[in-house]
């Protein structure tokens, strides 16, 4: 049972993605059920994997997004949900594998509570950024289809512009306070551990927080919306990826 490897669940997700892509051309219920089945199998395998060993940020984030995939697939059954979420899940797993052995993001046992709180808050904020990114990508594609006046029932089935914009906005609205709280707790842990404030991960997180602040100011004070806001959210996600990569970089370290 504990012999679950990264390849096991990555393969399940890859098969689910293949089935989701196939479903775009041949709309058959069996493909949907198979895709959800493989997605669920992958999630189960990944849960076992996470339960028995120390894990890194990316693999943890991929796990939350896999749950997000299953939720979306059941909730928006007719939509091309998996086509967008599963590549991100696979990408994070792939990046995690490439970055080497998973580092335990948790701080030493003495700071366990604050460490958990810090990691938990940042993880939820990262989920928000990822959801915002997915909504942004879907928004851009939907807007492109509308701009080209593609017949409504052709190709990818996407949510309406209004729904995608709302999802994007809520994800960012939720991510910012979580990120802020996570950073404040991180600062507390940092002071306790007397870590260097020039640590690349700390700098990266601070830059990400600033980027989000700018995003919110643009959204609410400057009323930036639609395509422009979707692009900014995608940029924020890229910044998050940089931060996550820094986590695994030799220069990076635990908070």
């Amino acid at each position: 049972m504990y012999g679950v490897t990264l390849v096991c669940f990555a393969s399940s997700y890859a098969v689910a993605l293949g089935l989701e892509l196939w479903r775009q051309f041949r709309s058959r219920p069996i493909l949907y059920y198979l895709a959800v089945g493989f997605g669920a199998a992958g999630l189960l395998a990944q849960s076992i994997y996470l339960a028995v060993r120390p894990v890194g940020w990316m693999i943890l984030l991929a796990w939350v997004l896999a749950i997000f995939y299953l939720y979306g697939s059941i909730h928006y059954r007719k939509m091309s949900w998996g086509v967008f979420v599963l590549p991100l899940v696979l990408g994070l797993i792939g990046l995690s594998a490439k970055m080497g052995p998973d580092a335990d993001p948790l701080p030493p046992a003495a700071d366990r509570f604050w460490g958990f709180l810090h990691v938990g808050l940042l993880l939820l904020a990262a989920v928000g950024v990822c959801v915002g990114f997915l909504a942004g990508v879907m928004y851009l594609i939907q807007a492109h289809r509308l701009r080209a006046k593609t017949p409504p029932r052709w190709g990818l089935r996407l949510l309406s512009l209004e729904r995608l914009e709302q999802m994007n906005r809520r994800a960012v609205d939720l991510a910012f306070p979580l990120l802020t709280a996570g950073l404040v707790v991180g600062l507390f842990v940092l002071i306790q551990n007397q870590a260097s404030p020039t640590n690349p991960r700390i700098v990266g997180a601070a830059v990400l927080w600033l980027a989000f602040l700018v995003l919110l100011v643009l959204r609410y004070a400057w009323r930036v919306r639609g395509r422009a806001f979707a692009l900014l959210t995608i940029a924020a996600f890229v910044l998050l990826l940089v931060c996550l990569v820094l986590e695994h970089h030799p220069l990076g370290g635990g908070a």
Binding site: Q142, R145, L146, P151, P152, R153, L158, L159, S160, L161, E162, R163, Q166
Partner: peptide, 13 residues
């Protein structure tokens, strides 16, 4: 109905 389909691509409710 094509018109309504387009409207539904933009608005949700």
């Amino acid at each position: 109905s094509a018109a309504v389909d387009y409207v539904r691509q933009v608005f949700d409710h």
